[in-house]
């Protein structure tokens, strides 16, 4: 083990970052709201922008969701500290 867990944790939190526990895991509140917004725009945007004959709206909505998911995963990093344990 390199550093003590407390030091690692303290170093990871940025100035002005608001963290909260939502659904069993820690998130950055601002990033979560942005992520909800991006995902909604991706999914709903894809659905509405597609030509209005089935199954295009649903397919485009799903593609939009996946693109938004990748964007969010790239933009927002996990708020987890992984600590290795010696067995």
């Amino acid at each position: 083990m390199s550093a003590l867990p407390e030091q690692k944790a303290a170093a990871a939190v940025r100035e002005g970052q608001v963290l909260a526990e939502v659904w069993e895991d820690v998130v950055d509140v601002k990033e979560l709201l942005l992520s909800l917004l991006i995902s909604t725009v991706g999914a709903l945007g894809g659905y509405i922008a597609a030509p209005n004959t089935p199954p295009y709206p649903l397919v485009c909505g799903l593609i939009g969701s996946v693109v938004a998911f990748v964007v969010c995963a790239v933009l927002f990093k996990p708020k987890r500290n992984l600590i290795d344990e010696e067995v």
Binding site: V22, L32, L34, S65
Partner: peptide
């Protein structure tokens, strides 16, 4: 990240 999953 959890943010991305919740968003999805």
């Amino acid at each position: 990240s959890h943010e991305a999953l919740l968003g999805l």
